[in-house]
Computed example of a mutant assay.
Amino acid sequence: MKPVSIRTLRSTDTEALLAFERDNREWFERHIDPRDPAFYSVQGVTEHIATYLADFAAGAWHPFVIEDPEGKIVGRANLKDIDLAEGSAEVGYRIAQSACGQGLATLAVKHLIQQAQVHWRLNRLVAHVYAGNIASAKVLKRCGFLIEQLALHEGIERDYRFGLWIEESHQYATGSKDNS
């Protein structure tokens, strides 16, 4: 895997983010709910970024982009619905189809876990994955998430809720878990 960087989304990312989203629209819509068609424009992405950055400033979201060595966006990752009182948030991520299979989703989720713990002092993360999205389920399991429940949506669509207690998984990963 070539080195990539993960950084907080910036207001100057409009063109690059629009290209990423347009290039991967069909791919993403196979695995997650489709975006409103109005999103796929300079104005739509500009408003999207402004909303995410306002939510970041308010402490409700932390949006990241993943860039390849040339600075092209190849993925996104977010801590969303951050609840500081409960110490929890939801994770979400999407990787360009051309960058799949390179470990970027795992890298993104590990980055979210680290940021949740260090930057936000959270201790609980959740993620929702459609039942047919086996690759995302594997990524979450690889990062220490466990299946908590199965939900049905409007008939036949099902998804799984995964959860992670950060402190426990961090201690386990570092070998410092106290079993007393």
Rank of each mutant, 00 (worst) to 15 (best):
R76D: 14
S136D: 08
K110P: 10
H111F: 15
K138N: 15
K141I: 13
G163F: 06
A89P: 00
Q115R: 08
A58N: 13
A108Y: 08
E154W: 13
V109R: 13
R161W: 03
T51D: 11
E90G: 00
R76H: 14
K141V: 14
K80R: 09
D55H: 10
A108E: 07
K141H: 11
Q115E: 10
L125H: 00
A151I: 14
Y52C: 07
Q102Y: 08
L150P: 03
W61P: 02
E148N: 11
I95P: 01
W165G: 01
L84N: 05
T106H: 09
L140E: 07
A105R: 08
S98T: 14
A105V: 13
D55R: 12
R76N: 10
A96W: 08
A57W: 04
A96L: 09
G101H: 05
I82W: 06
H62G: 01
R161H: 04
G103N: 13
E70F: 09
V139P: 03
Q97L: 00
A58G: 08
I49P: 01
A85R: 10
V74L: 06
K80S: 08
R76S: 09
C143D: 06
W120R: 10
G132W: 11
F162T: 00
I82Y: 09
I134K: 11
D68F: 06
Q117M: 12
I66R: 00
E168R: 03
Q171W: 06
L140G: 04
A60Y: 04
Q171R: 13
V139I: 14
E168A: 03
W120I: 13
Q171C: 04
V109M: 12
G163N: 00
I95Q: 04
V129W: 10
D159C: 10
I166A: 00
G163V: 02
I49Y: 03
L53E: 00
Q114P: 14
V126K: 05
S88D: 01
N123L: 06
L140Y: 11
G59Y: 12
G59W: 12
D55A: 09
Q149E: 08
L146S: 12
Q114E: 12
E167A: 05
V109H: 12
L112Q: 07
G132S: 01
G144K: 07
E167S: 04
A96I: 04
F145C: 12
F56I: 01
Q171T: 05
L125K: 00
A131M: 07
W120Y: 13
I113E: 15
A127D: 01
N133S: 08
Q97T: 02
G132T: 02
A50V: 03
K141W: 09
A108V: 10
A127M: 02
S88Q: 02
A105L: 13
I134V: 09
A54V: 06
I82Q: 02
G71K: 08
D81H: 06
A131W: 06
V118G: 13
Q102A: 03
N78G: 06
G144T: 06
A137E: 09
S136E: 10
A77F: 12
V118I: 14
A131L: 12
